[in-house]
């Protein structure tokens, strides 16, 4: 059952990372939220056949990784977890879209191009979302959502789901550990106990969630999740926001990799 415990610790990794103290972490959460939203819209708005122009959007995650001192491997691992779904969705494209195009002397079907662009878009957007959480933390992010006037109920739901998932996973992990210790010779869980184990898990996690909620109420919880941070937007935050939005706008309108290419070949000529 080590893998389940590991994924549990993995899940908390983003929380741990969010407590770092770098320049990016100290930025106002709302600024980071807005940048991420603009980024997502810009990436998604690209046409299916534009791969070249999309590449300039790699610049954003790379810089954030570097400045926020985040471990690239463990975050990319999470992104890769999502990619199989995208492959599942996009794999049929090459079969449906047979039109041929020529890129740099190689002839391929347009289906592969759309597939690749889907793959890249997904990678970029998921990475951006994970980076947002890893540099801001769920609590501050929720604060930012509240500042953007998202209804309290939605924000609270998001936060509590996020909190409860880890609480519930701990419960699952404990039950499974107890099972595996008493059934040491088995691989996985025997079919005959699936039913009762699943039932147990549901009841136990439910009870646990209820007790956690009771404990929260006893400490005066009334539905408003207060994190105590009431940050002000500083000039640095505004500058950071404006700089990225300008970059996204330019990168969206002009094909920067192509321009650079032209510039270089122009110089050579």
């Amino acid at each position: 059952m080590a893998n389940i415990m590991n994924s549990l610790y993995d899940m908390r990794l983003l929380d741990d990372l969010a407590r770092k103290e770098t320049f990016i972490h100290r930025l106002h959460p709302m600024v980071k939220l807005v940048i991420t939203i603009v980024y997502l819209i810009a990436v998604v708005s690209f046409d299916r056949y534009e791969i070249g122009a999309l590449l300039s959007f790699l610049f954003y995650p790379v810089l954030v990784f570097a400045f926020a001192e985040l471990p690239i491997a463990s975050i990319l691992k999470r992104v890769l977890l999502i990619e199989p779904f995208i492959i599942g969705i996009g794999i049929l494209n090459p079969f449906f879209d047979h039109q041929l195009i020529v890129i740099g002397g190689i002839t391929i079907s347009r289906g592969w191009v759309t597939f690749l662009s889907l793959f890249i878009k997904c990678g970029l957007t998921v990475t951006a979302a994970l980076l947002l959480i890893a540099t801001t933390g769920m609590d501050r992010l929720a604060g930012a959502l509240r500042m953007l006037k998202i209804p309290r109920l939605f924000v609270l739901q998001l936060l509590l789901t996020y909190r409860y998932i880890s609480v519930l996973m701990e419960e699952v992990a404990r039950t499974l550990r107890a099972y595996s210790l008493r059934a040491p010779a088995q691989q996985g869980i025997h079919r005959s106990v699936w039913g009762s184990l699943a039932g147990q898990l549901i009841l136990r996690t439910f009870e646990r969630a209820q007790r956690v909620y009771q404990a929260m109420c006893l400490r005066g919880f009334t539905g408003e999740y207060l994190t105590g941070v009431n940050e002000k937007i500083k000039t640095l935050d505004v500058a950071y926001l404006v700089a990225w939005i300008l970059f996204f706008a330019v990168a969206r309108i002009y094909n920067i990799p192509m321009l650079i290419g032209l510039l270089i070949t122009g110089v050579i000529k």
């Binding site: 969010a18 407590r19 909190r163 404990a215 408003e224 994190t227």
Partner: peptide
């Protein structure tokens, strides 16, 4: 509570202890 796990659910001990006063 009898089981401290029921009571602690924030990301840091500090935030957990601050949860009540903040409410």
């Amino acid at each position: 509570f009898q089981d401290p796990d029921d009571q602690l659910f924030m990301t840091t001990v500090y935030d957990d202890v601050a949860f009540g006063p903040r409410n």
